[in-house]
């Protein structure tokens, strides 16, 4: 299985389209960094303009490496699923399209083993994409802009996290984001297993994410009270929970605390459930599939 995994990873990274995702992330991150280097203060002002009448806001201090990384993750983690789907949507359907899937099935391995190996290769790709994103958005931002306390703007409150208390939250958030993106990889993997060309699973994955995200964010009671708690897009935002620091009765933040850890763990469990459901379904379908191409 190890050999097979190496082979699958080799195949992924041999394809030029794999690097589109890495190049796209680099371009987005660098463009945002340059923009915030020049107009970062204005951007922070725009975000916090409702407080301008009450408080003197240290805009320049807020625009630090940690804050820029948070702002970027806000933007990127909505778009990265598309880049994940580029590879995982192609991993089976691409072979079916090229006619190599039947050849692959002549090897002395079970279909379930082959599917798991392919899925693990997708997971490795997703993790490498996130490591790349972490390096660019966190490491480079910290080098360029330095560190200071992190200010997190929520809809109804503004949270300040001391700089010594930030790094572990990023590590946890990236860990959570990995699981969230693996859900996307699993979804497009499932769609790839039932398709004969790679365009279909990629477009279908992106469409599902867009529809679910709109349903999650529209705030319409009929969706909020029924389907929203079960949509994986609702729980994919759980990485932010690590930045929602707890405060005492006087409003003073407590170092090392998280407002609602059970909610994060619940989201993590739901995402884990989705991974099992999607991958399990993909294996189940593939085991019963007539491979004609």
């Amino acid at each position: 299985m190890w050999k097979l995994l190496q082979f699958e990873v080799f195949k992924i990274f041999k394809k030029p389209r794999t690097y589109i995702a890495f190049a796209a992330i680099a371009a987005i991150v660098l463009l945002i960094q340059v923009a915030l280097l020049i107009n970062g203060k204005e951007y922070v002002k725009f975000m916090l303009s409702s407080l301008d009448d009450t408080l003197d806001i240290p805009y320049t201090q807020i625009r630090n490496g940690y804050w820029i990384c948070f702002a970027m993750l806000n933007l990127l983690l909505i778009h990265v699923p598309i880049l994940v789907a580029l590879v995982s949507g192609d991993i089976i359907a691409g072979e079916a399209n090229m006619g190599t899937l039947r050849l692959l099935m002549t090897k002395p391995i079970s279909r379930a083993e082959m599917m798991l190996t392919k899925f693990l290769a997708c997971v490795i790709y997703t993790i490498m994409l996130l490591i790349w994103m972490t390096f660019l958005s966190l490491v480079i931002s910290v080098v360029l802009f330095g560190t200071n306390d992190l200010v997190v703007a929520k809809e109804a409150e503004l949270l300040q996290i001391e700089k010594v208390d930030v790094l572990w939250r990023y590590i946890a958030a990236f860990g959570f984001a990995t699981v969230a993106l693996i859900v996307v990889a699993a979804l497009s993997f499932l769609l790839s297993a039932i398709s004969e060309n790679s365009i279909g699973p990629i477009v279908a994955t992106v469409s599902i994410i867009i529809v679910f995200t709109i349903m999650s964010e529209m705030r319409i009671p009929i969706y909020d009270n029924t389907v929203k708690p079960y949509l994986f897009t609702t729980h994919m935002l759980g990485w932010k929970g690590f930045f929602y620091i707890k405060a005492d009765e006087d409003g003073q933040t407590i170092r090392g605390s998280i407002q609602n850890l059970p909610a994060i763990m619940k989201s993590l469990a739901i995402l884990g459930g989705y991974i099992v459901l999607f991958v399990g379904s993909a294996i189940f379908i593939f085991k019963r599939k007539d491979i004609l191409s």
Binding site: S50, K154, E217
Partner: peptide, 13 residues
């Protein structure tokens, strides 16, 4: 103090 939800994309806990 109020931020538009579309800007913050809060995690609903």
């Amino acid at each position: 103090y109020k931020m538009p939800k579309g800007v913050t994309f809060d995690f609903d806990d």
